[in-house]
Design a protein around this nucleic acid. Structure first.
Lengths: 242, 242
DNA sequence: ATAGTTAGTTGTACAGTCCAACTTACTTAG
DNA sequence: CTAAGTAAGTTGGACTGTACAACTAACTAT
């Protein structure tokens, strides 16, 4: 272990000559598929010296100081590499760093969380969607990625309570019942139809398109997201959450 | 610059032999002093090779892979070193990393934000409280610490709108009007007395002590925080914030 | 035609804020 | 001893938006 992670220190003062932690970025990518909330996971490689070989993990990896201008660019790059999606909702989740989370040494990861619209993803071969049931993932993950994912789910649920975040999970055109269903999937509880409609429609975040969704029942109005960048924050949560 | 930040890579696979970013932790420490929101800042040292010599900056510094078990411990250590305070409110704020934020090379900082009770601080000589007026700081800060501070102020204001966070800024015993005043200082707008009282009292977060605050007017009931760990989240914000 | 299902509306109850006036308890000036 | 002043704390009506539940609307399938 001696000398690992120690910098050579070319500066005149030599003050940078001390061990540096490893720096990575990981991305929790959510989508709605099969009427469930799913997260994108990759399988760890099996090479020599690789930690957690063949385990499932969040997509991510080391910051490339040559390629990545900043952390957000690094996260966007990893999202793009895995899903082909370029500009969905991408928010910083937090960072996790400790001496023990990576067997290769003191490491810190910067975690992001992304919401991608249904159907828009072209996955790489090592990546796959895994359903989240009951607010948890079945599988065990590499590193502390289970903790990171749990935090992401909690953050998502929390924000869905009072923001328009689920709009970023929708396809280009959708109906109000579609949107309500996504809220309900994420929150894992039913919502009031009329209060939901009032809230969404008065938030000025979606606009009707001149089409209806036709089906076996009464047709439903189709909407699309207005091209407003920021999510909407409501001044109340839905139900008293407990 | 050549070779700076490059690790020696002692592992058998050699896959860790690439440049590592610098890793730091910075803490935004808030307190109420002189009826204003203030933030703790330190003066940068003036030594050879030091960036931003003598500028004001957030307290923080490099992660010490020998001393710091994890990021939160590192933040707590820096808080303790500067203020002598041990266990106030400490929350992760986010991370900032880019090729350009530190002239010494690609660096990433993990920012925390802390709320410390009025009067409980014993500062080191290089640290001082600086008032935030109109939601901004007068002084320019080193690195991107101005951005980090702005984010912290925004986060604080945002959360104060629907949480009990200001309780962590209060001294051991305080009155309801005291607490309301702190809310108003942070939000920079007046709040409704009766709605405020109803909200706080029904939140089960404070309990009366058997004493009154006496003054030139009608005495006010003194309260203290219940020893509940987590802040309370309200289901509404106060005013429609705009 | 009729039953079934989902979309969407309507109306009453209720919770909590907003606003403003009010009562209470103290100090200080005359 | 009283009166004025001030801040603490209460009360009540208006308003906003959710909860709940019943309703109407529009379509398909039998």
């Amino acid at each position: 272990m001696a000398g690992e992670g120690r910098t050579e220190g070319s500066g005149k003062s030599g003050q940078l000559d001390f061990p540096r932690p490893l720096t990575t970025v990981d991305v929790v990518i959510f989508a709605i598929l099969d009427d469930r909330l799913q997260v994108l996971l990759v399988q760890r490689p099996a090479g020599e010296g690789e930690p957690f070989p063949l385990s499932l993990a969040l997509p991510g990896g080391f910051v490339d100081v040559a390629k990545d201008r900043d952390l957000a660019a690094c996260a966007a790059r990893k999202l793009q590499e895995k899903t082909g999606v370029t500009s969905p909702y991408l928010e910083q989740l937090g960072s996790w760093g400790s001496a023990t989370r990576d067997p290769r040494g003191w490491s810190a990861t910067h975690a992001y969380f992304a919401l991608v619209p249904t159907q828009a993803s072209v996955l790489t071969s090592d990546a796959r969607w895994c359903p989240i049931s009951g607010g948890r993932l079945k599988e065990k993950l590499a590193f502390d990625h289970g903790d990171i994912l749990a935090t992401a789910i909690q953050r998502l649920r929390n924000k869905v309570e009072y923001t328009s975040l689920p709009a970023y999970l929708m396809p280009a055109e959708f109906t109000l019942p579609d949107l309500q269903r996504v809220y309900e999937i994420v929150l894992d509880r039913p919502l009031e139809k009329s209060a939901f409609r009032t809230r969404i429609l008065s938030a000025d975040m979606i606009e009707p398109v001149a089409k209806m969704r036709r089906g076996p029942n009464r047709p439903a109005q189709l909407y699309r997201l207005k091209k407003s960048k920021e999510p909407v924050y409501f001044v109340r949560t839905f139900n008293p959450p407990e």
